[in-house]
Nucleic acid binder design. Sequence first.
DNA 1: GCCGTCAAAGTGATTAGATGACTTAAACAC
DNA 2: GTGTTTAAGTCATCTAATCACTTTGACGGC
Lengths: 242, 242
Amino acid sequence: MNTSIGLVERLTLEIVATIRSDNLQPGQTLPSAKALAERFEVTVPTVREALRRLEATGSVELKHGSGTYVREAINRRILDNPHYVPVDLAAAIELLDARIAIEPGIAELAASVQDAAAVTSMDSALDNALQVQTAVPAGHFHVELAKASGNRALSEMLVSLLAIHSRTQQAARTTYDRLRDHDEHAGILDAVKRGDGFEASHRTRRHLEAIKAAVLADWQPEGEAEVAGDANRAATSAGDLR
Amino acid sequence: MNTSIGLVERLTLEIVATIRSDNLQPGQTLPSAKALAERFEVTVPTVREALRRLEATGSVELKHGSGTYVREAINRRILDNPHYVPVDLAAAIELLDARIAIEPGIAELAASVQDAAAVTSMDSALDNALQVQTAVPAGHFHVELAKASGNRALSEMLVSLLAIHSRTQQAARTTYDRLRDHDEHAGILDAVKRGDGFEASHRTRRHLEAIKAAVLADWQPEGEAEVAGDANRAATSAGDLR
DNA sequence: GCCGTCAAAGTGATTAGATGACTTAAACAC
DNA sequence: GTGTTTAAGTCATCTAATCACTTTGACGGC
């Protein structure tokens, strides 16, 4: 009866269960594929198929010659599709619209929760933004804001949106000013600190709508201007979709 | 240079690419594993590992003895983690909070978009709800509402939330009345039809908060009352988290 | 003693071939 | 024409082996 699902899928869930029961944290290594095969009384190829499943969902990482490592996403419930390919500017706008729809609510929640630790994280995210920026970093202001809401489902959704965005990004270059970006973030953070949910929500919405407007404006000149002034551009366009 | 990613991951992306370029739709079958192995000049186990990745993300389904089938999720960007296990009542509340944070915005969007076809879908979803209910059906009112927003990222997020919820559900039984549920849906739909975004948003929020309140109230009696009146309960508790 | 080189062991990556189980549909008998 | 049987195609799993990469520790030069 229980065998209505395949051996591989069952094995996958068993591996996840042992990761949890053994309290393995992200960064730690799983037993070798051979060891897992013996423990669960299956063969190595079967184990590998199970690990590939977990790899696709970001739960583990297979490092050639090194081992299999637990990854953060094992604790996430909402993921981005790692195999999704089509990325154009329309998709970028759609993602921004999605953010406009959900982030004001997140900001409002964050203001009502008032988590001290989360506020600190947002503070440092504010500074980080003026430095270098990586792909979808922990320390991203909007992600920290979502975490401050205390609702993991919400922050996971935002992380997913931003992850997708980072793959779309090449198509959507923005000229959104870095300093303006910083100022608006500071305004949102201020409202959150004061516990003013309405203001936080409102500012977040305006912030994202301004970014969207900037993206659309940047889109207007169509084919041209694509090649011009890369160096100059880089100085002002780094603020980007945050 | 391009080989910084493994053979399996590259193969996975190539398979997705050919599914798209061959315009294979959900329900159609992929070439056999052996055929794929020959086409991409790898061996069958390697192909299988790639297919397992796609299986984990819901992009394909491997049917024993039959074939490999394309599935809907190949067109989704946001997914639920199929390997996520821990599910308790606190998680259910968190998911409801997430819905409260995002669905009002979705309803507002839907009201402003005014897609005729989507409204029709919501109409029939309204009726379906009084009939039997499956897991996370297409035809679910809130999903159709999200689709009516015209933003796929939003509807995908909601589908993910509900999919997670359906796995959590056993822990969270609600006494939310089916008729009340229907009436509130009708009210939201009415507001959407009128293009009254504010009203649609407001009603959605109240609707979800009422459900949350019902879930919490049901939780109060803690350990007791869990076993009592299953038959009676079933008559009124079917409305559930919609 | 310290540090760099190198060899060996451990681990994942990929291949190869074979067997079993399940599904489907065509061939066959009635 | 209908039902059963059979055969082909397909996924599922296993066994066995080779290759490639990483890490570590021993060895020897400095």
